[in-house]
Simulated assay, not measured.
Amino acid sequence: MGFSAEWLSLREPADRAARDEALARQAAMAAGPNPLVVDLGCGTGATWRALAPYFPSEARWRFIDNDPALLAEAGRVAGGNADLVEADLGQMNTVPLDGASLVTASALLDLMPEAWVANLAGRLNVPFYATLNYDGRMSWDPEHQDDAAVTAAFNLHQVGDKGIGPALGPHSVTRTMALFEAAGFTVLRADSAWVLGPDMAPLQRELTDGIAQAAAEAGARDTAASWGGHRHARADRTQCRIGHIDILALPSGNLQESTHVLR
């Protein structure tokens, strides 16, 4: 399970535009005055680039990823403000969360199994801010007769095993909220849908190519192939909306304390 630096760079402007700013500010406030932010699956540091303006300049980060090349790039852009940890997120019990005052993740939860999220909720007694979680909704303007069928096949593919167990896919938001609420957190949510116009045609093409491939693997081969060709050819004349949700899970107690602990 992993993503190329090229894909992460291509999607970052859409991610930045989609993030809910009010929830981001609330996450930064919840981290307290001397934050240590642990970013799970940091990639090239997109979460740092999006959130750093909300934190004091002395805020510390711990970037965690299983790809050393992505980690190196994240460390380069963050300078001396981040520690780099190469770790397998699938082995959650070994991921270092000690000292964290905020744990973050972007476009990650829909790839993870429910047991992984339950483990995380059980370990944390600090705020958890997870953004850009795919929620199963997709639409295009103009429409195509196979949009619904391809979306259904893609969503089926998304709950397959990504290497560590069946993924939550489009159910990641509802299940994560329920698991963190059961662990005593108050969970807030905000819409963070991608809205991609013709000006983002390169991203649309990469996105719909990937959707078509996944839908084909889920059994809609002929439909997905014709749909994917149609969407690729018309990306510069199309607007699409891909549903995402940001969530912020807040533990009980004083969220402004500078020292936080793990359960």
Rank of each mutant, 00 (worst) to 15 (best):
A183S: 11
W140G: 00
M200P: 01
A178P: 08
G136Y: 07
F154H: 09
A193Q: 11
S139E: 14
T174Q: 15
R189L: 12
D199W: 12
D146N: 10
P202K: 05
L179G: 05
V159W: 07
P198G: 10
G163P: 03
T131H: 08
P127I: 01
G165P: 05
M177W: 14
I164H: 12
Y129A: 11
A178Y: 02
P166E: 08
V187Y: 08
T186E: 05
D146P: 07
H144Y: 15
P142N: 09
N133Y: 10
S172L: 03
A153C: 01
A182W: 05
W140C: 10
T151Q: 13
M200N: 12
Q145K: 15
V126H: 06
D147I: 03
A178N: 04
A178D: 05
M177T: 12
V126D: 09
G197E: 04
R175H: 13
A183K: 07
G197T: 03
L156I: 03
G184Y: 04
A183C: 03
L132W: 01
Q145W: 11
L196R: 05
L179P: 12
D161H: 08
P170L: 05
M177R: 15
M177V: 15
N125W: 14
A178G: 10
T174K: 13
L179A: 09
H144S: 08
T174H: 11
T186N: 06
E143Y: 09
Q158C: 12
L168S: 08
L188G: 08
N133G: 01
E181K: 10
V173W: 06
D141G: 10
P166S: 15
